[in-house]
Amino acid sequence: MQIPVINRSHHPLPAYQTAHAAGLDVRANLPEPVTLRPLQRALIPTGLFVALPTGYEMQVRPRSGLAFKHGIGIVNSPGTIDADYRGEIRVLLVNLSDVDFVVQDGERIAQLVVARHEVIDWEPTEELDETARGTGGYGSTGSQ
C-alpha cells in the first residue's frame, strides 16, 4: 500500500524495525528537548503529514520499550488518525513514572499502525440475539 506523506522533519520516515513488525516507529521532531515531569503530558510533533485512503485509519500506539523502561505512554492510546485529517501527526505522551523523562529530538516515541475499518449503519431493534455470555461484563469470562 502506498501512502502519500510529507516529511517536514529532518529525520527519516517512520520505519518497521523488524521484518514482521506491525508498527512503524515514528520520531519526535523537536527544536529542543521536552521534559515530562511525573504525570505530565505533552503533545510531541513529528513533522509528518499523511493522506490515508478512505476506509483506513492510522493508529498511534505506545512503544513497549518506553512504557516498560520509563513509564512513558500515550494518553489516548491508541490514537486515531482519520483518512480526512491532513494536519501534522502529533503524539500525546504521558509520563506515568515517578521521575522526569526527557524526550529528545529524533527519539522513537510511538508506533504507527495502518488498519482497515468499516463504516456502519445502525439497525435499531428492541432485542438482541442470545449468546452463552449474555450480559456478563468485566471479568465474567475468567476465574478471579
Rank of each mutant, 00 (worst) to 15 (best):
T54M: 11
L52P: 03
D82W: 12
L48F: 14
V99C: 13
H70R: 14
L96I: 00
L112G: 02
Q40S: 13
T46G: 06
E127W: 03
T125Y: 01
L39C: 12
P45E: 03
V26D: 08
G137Q: 01
A51F: 11
G23V: 05
P78N: 15
R63V: 03
V114C: 07
A28K: 04
T46C: 11
L24W: 10
E130V: 02
P78G: 15
L96T: 04
Y85Q: 09
R108L: 08
L43I: 07
E118R: 01
T141E: 13
T131F: 02
R61C: 11
E130I: 00
L24T: 01
R90L: 06
I120L: 10
G142T: 07
Y85S: 11
T131Y: 08
R133E: 12
G139S: 04
A42S: 15
D105R: 02
R90I: 09
Y85C: 04
G106L: 09
E32D: 14
P38T: 11
R63S: 05
T54Y: 11
R37Q: 15
G142E: 12
R37K: 15
T125Q: 05
S64H: 08
A115E: 13
A115K: 11
G87S: 15
P78K: 13
I120M: 07
H70C: 14
R41S: 13
V99G: 12
D25M: 05
P31I: 01
E32Q: 14
L48A: 12
T80P: 13
E88H: 05
T35V: 15
L52F: 12
D100T: 10
G65S: 08
A83D: 15
V50R: 00
T35P: 04
E57R: 01
G106E: 10
R61H: 08
V60Q: 00
G55A: 11
A51G: 11
G23N: 09
L39F: 08
N29W: 11
I81A: 12
G73W: 06
Q59K: 08
F101N: 04
T35M: 15
H117M: 06
D25S: 04
R61Y: 09
K69F: 07
L36K: 00
F68D: 10
V103C: 10
L92Q: 11
D121S: 06
R108Y: 02
P78L: 04
R86M: 14
V60R: 00
N95C: 06
L52T: 02
G106Q: 08
N29S: 13
G23K: 03
P53I: 03
A132D: 13
A67M: 08
Q40Y: 12
E130A: 09
L39Y: 07
T80F: 14
A51C: 14
E127G: 00
D100V: 09
T141M: 07
G137A: 01
E127H: 09
L52K: 00
L39P: 03
R108A: 10
N76T: 13
Y56N: 10
Q104S: 05
V75F: 13
V75I: 15
P78Q: 15
G87W: 05
V119L: 04
G142V: 07
M58L: 14
E107M: 10
K69I: 03
G139C: 03
D100F: 14
W122P: 02
V99D: 13
G23D: 09
